[in-house]
C-alpha cells in the first residue's frame, strides 16, 4: 500500500534523474497555477480590447501595461497566454488520460492472452503508430469539428497506440518471468495475476510513456490549434495565437509569435524532463 511519505520519497528521494524530474514538475506546476488562478494573474480578459482604439489597428510592442505587447485587435498577449493555459492543459490532460485509460488495459489484455485478438490489435495499433500523428489528429479533428473536447479525442486516437505498444511489450517480458509463472502455478485467476503481478511491474514504464506522450501531445495540440481546430478565434489558445501572429511578423511584431511559442516549448519541456527523469531513474530506454 503506497503511503504519502512513500510517494514523496519516490519523487524527491536522492535517486538518479532527481534534478530532471524536479525541474520538470516545477515547470508543470507553474502552468497549473497559471491556469487555476488565471482571473487573478491575467491583467485583462482574453478578448478584452486593452488599448485605446486609436492604437488598436496594429500590434503594439511590450510596455509597462502590456509586458508581452498586444495583438492587432488590442488584446493583451500575456493575458491571452494565461487564459490559454486553461485550454491547453484541459486538452492535453484529457487526451493523455483518455489514451492511457484505453491503451493500457488493451495492451495488458492483448499481451497477456495473445492469440488472434492480439495479432489483429497489434497490427491496427502499429499501423496507426507508423502514421504521422499530427496528420491523423488533424483529420479526426477536422471531421469532429473545432472544440477542445473534440481536439482531445483526436489526440487520443494518436496516443492510444503509444501506450498499447509499450505496455504490451512489457507484459510479454513480465509474463515470461518466474514470479508470474509461480502465480500461475499457485492457481491464481488471470485477472488477479494481471492486476497484482503484471500491472505493478509495468507501472514505471507507463509513467515514462505518459511523460513522453504528454510532451508530444502538447506539441500536437499546438499544431491542432495552429490549424484552428481547438477553439475559434478570438478564443485564446497558444498555437492559434502564434498563427495569427505570423501575419504580423513582416511588420516586425515579434512579440505576437515569440511569447506564445515560448510557453508551448516550455510546457512540452516540462513533461519531457519528467519523462526523461523517470526514464533515468528506472533505467527505461524508449524508442522516441
Amino acid at each position: 500500500m503506497p503511503t504519502i511519505s512513500g510517494v514523496t520519497q519516490q519523487i524527491f528521494g536522492r535517486k538518479p534523474g532527481r534534478g530532471l524530474l524536479l525541474t520538470g514538475l516545477a515547470i508543470i506546476l507553474a502552468f497549473v497555477i497559471l491556469a487555476v488562478f488565471a482571473p487573478w494573474i491575467a491583467p485583462y480578459g482574453p478578448t478584452e480590447r486593452s488599448v485605446p482604439s486609436s492604437l488598436a489597428a496594429s500590434p503594439q510592442p511590450p510596455d509597462r501595461n502590456h509586458i508581452m505587447g498586444t495583438t492587432e485587435l488590442g488584446y493583451d498577449v500575456f493575458s491571452r497566454i494565461v487564459w490559454g493555459t486553461r485550454i491547453v492543459l484541459y486538452v492535453v490532460a484529457f487526451s493523455a488520460i483518455l489514451s492511457m485509460a484505453i491503451g493500457v488495459p488493451l495492451g495488458l489484455v492483448s499481451g497477456f492472452y495473445g492469440g488472434k485478438l492480439d495479432r489483429i490489435l497489434s497490427m491496427v495499433m502499429d499501423s496507426i503508430y507508423a502514421f504521422p500523428g499530427i496528420v491523423l489528429a488533424l483529420a479526426v479533428a477536422s471531421v469532429l469539428g473545432p472544440s477542445p473536447t473534440n481536439a482531445a479525442i483526436s489526440l487520443s486516437v494518436v496516443y492510444v497506440p503509444t501506450f498499447f505498444r509499450m505496455v504490451r511489450g512489457q507484459v510479454l517480458e513480465v509474463r515470461e518471468s518466474l514470479y508470474v509463472e509461480a502465480a500461475e502455478a499457485l492457481g491464481y485467476p488471470n485477472t488477479h495475476i494481471m492486476l497484482y503481478h503484471v500491472l505493478p511491474n509495468v507501472a514505471p514504464t507507463i509513467l515514462v510513456v505518459f511523460g513522453l506522450a504528454a510532451t508530444d501531445a502538447i506539441l500536437t495540440e499546438a499544431g491542432l490549434a495552429f490549424f484552428g481546430l481547438t477553439v475559434s478565434y478570438p478564443s485564446p489558445d497558444w498555437g492559434l495565437d502564434l498563427r495569427v501572429g505570423l501575419r504580423y511578423l513582416d511588420q516586425g511584431a515579434w512579440w505576437a509569435t515569440l511569447f506564445p511559442g515560448i510557453v508551448i516549448t516550455l510546457l512540452a519541456l516540462g513533461f519531457a524532463l519528467v519523462g526523461e527523469g523517470l526514464g533515468e531513474r528506472y533505467a527505461i530506454r524508449t524508442e522516441r
Binding site: A222, L242, L246, T257, L258, G261, I264, T265, A272
Partner: peptide, 13 residues
C-alpha cells in the same frame, strides 16, 4: 531534449 520540444511554427517564425 530541448530540440525535440521546439514547436515547429515557433522556431520557423
Amino acid at each position: 531534449i530541448v530540440a525535440y520540444t521546439l514547436f515547429i511554427p515557433w522556431l520557423g517564425s
